[in-house]
Amino acid sequence: MARGVLYPRVETSLNAGVDPAIVVDGLVKRYSGQEVVAGLSLTVQRGEVFALLGPNGAGKTTTVEILEGYRPADAGAVHVLGLNPRREARALKQRIGVVLQQGGIYPQATPQEMLSLFARFYAHPARVDELLELAGLAQVARTRFRRLSGGQQRRLALALALVGNPDLVFLDEPTSGMDPQGRQLTWQVVSQLRERGVTVLLTTHYMEEAQRLADHIAIIDHGRLLAFGTPRELLRGTSDTTVVRLRLPHALPPEQLRALSLVHTVRELDEGDYQLEVENPAAALAELTAWLRDHQVVLDDLRVGQVTLEDVFLQLTGRDLRE
């Protein structure tokens, strides 16, 4: 069939002969001539939580919208649950759930009304009262959307994505603008979905979220895949280096720090805020602090730790995730 022709490599590389949930191959999308997705390829296996990680403007949302069938691709091929998102949109929409980055709900409607409405759209809907319970919205089931707190609004958006008992859920920045409590609840729901075998594709610019939830992470920027792997794999490549974060009250030419023998790289994150990669941390710290003492540099903050995904991202893109 068409799928075999388009994805010969994928068909042979599958584990247990199960089709992947999502296959993206050489995806390109241009907005007014500019490529926001520039030849992206990735595969999401069934039942896993997959995080698309990248800063704002990396092409995450556009990619997700193409996968949902909301936008056509300019080039490349996309298969979602074995379906073409544009040509087989009807069949696909019965099987996916979507959380938009923001909005999507009538301000004058209540959670009860919204969930009941969406339940009518699907062949095998979940029970509305159970979803209200799951999302912690039972108490406000009859409160109009615009009167809900920001966290409650986002939770309703999440519940709406689950009404159809989907096989695949797209979560576009699901916890941005959420209170800590809402974030915990969302993470719980994502874990529950994984336990039920639902595939989850989430976009985020929170490292902690990706590291905690995802089975696989794709780091993208400027519409390109920069790195891919499990959280552990992404960290492994760098695990022999230690990161030192140094904050000084006054800025200092980074070359002076770079001149230290045990310091590999110096990155100035902000004025007086440096991130150093070092080897042999004990010796490097001795060298560093001795130098600071000799030059009478006041020290505001000094932290030593293993590389985090945040550092990996910084290495790959040269910029901070939250820019």
Binding site: E68, G69, Y70, R90, K93, Q94, I96, V98, L100, Q102, G103, G104, I105, Y106, P107, F118, F121, Y122, L160, G164
Partner: peptide
């Protein structure tokens, strides 16, 4: 509805 993203969410639901 367009401004609030309602049309967009409905567009990704099975409602044609």
């Amino acid at each position: 509805e367009r401004y609030y993203g309602v049309l967009k969410l409905l567009g990704s639901s099975p409602l044609p």
